[in-house]
Amino acid sequence: MSDIMRHVPFDVPEPFRRFLHGETGSMLRVEEFQDGSTMVVRAELPGIEPDRDVDITVSGNTLTIAAKREEKSEYRGKHNYRSEFQYGAFTRSIQLPQGTREEDIKASYTDGVLEVRIPTPDQDSAPSRKVPVSRSAAGGHGSAGLGTTDATSEATAPGQFPGTPPVSE
């Protein structure tokens, strides 16, 4: 799409240009990984003031990161301005592990990267129990008719379908 935009003979409004480039906007892109017993979520948010522009909330088992980046218009000129930065409000919700304590969640902002560290609760240490699988005798009805043959069906001649009368020649 960007190749088409290079050949357009008129100025395309910024929001429309971003849409054509696939920058639909409001979803915050993150990376998420496990660091030992801690879930780590990172979001690249350069050019923001974390105290003012970031809001991290926990509701139930959902962590929501909301951020905003305001566009500064001091560089805008009629023919000499180009910006590929994204501006506006961005949000992302992440499912937290069951039993996460919100008071243990910590966030930091360094060099344009927001990092949220979520200690994951110890998983239930109860031993797992193997569930035995019973096996029915051959020809039993344990398979609900799948892949079984009906002993009462009539034999069919080659090329004849079950339930159709035999063809006499």
Rank of each mutant, 00 (worst) to 15 (best):
R17E: 03
T152R: 08
G99Q: 11
P13W: 10
E169H: 06
G47P: 04
L114C: 00
I118H: 02
N61E: 06
G145I: 13
P15Q: 09
R18P: 00
L96M: 03
E71Y: 01
R135K: 14
F85D: 12
V41L: 02
R69S: 07
K72R: 15
S168T: 07
D11H: 03
D111H: 15
V30W: 04
T100R: 05
Y81D: 14
P9G: 02
E74F: 05
R129M: 05
V30S: 04
T149I: 08
D35C: 10
V12M: 15
E70A: 12
D55W: 06
G145S: 08
T64L: 00
P46G: 09
T148D: 07
M27D: 07
K72V: 02
P50R: 05
V58E: 04
D51H: 11
G47T: 12
A157H: 08
E84I: 05
G60T: 13
S168G: 11
R82C: 05
V41W: 01
A89P: 11
D51K: 14
S108W: 04
T120Y: 01
T57E: 01
G145F: 03
E23G: 10
P132C: 13
A126Q: 08
R92W: 04
V12W: 07
D55K: 15
G163Y: 08
S83Q: 13
I65H: 02
R69L: 13
T91F: 11
A151M: 14
E115T: 02
H141I: 15
R82G: 12
H79Q: 10
R101P: 06
E103S: 04
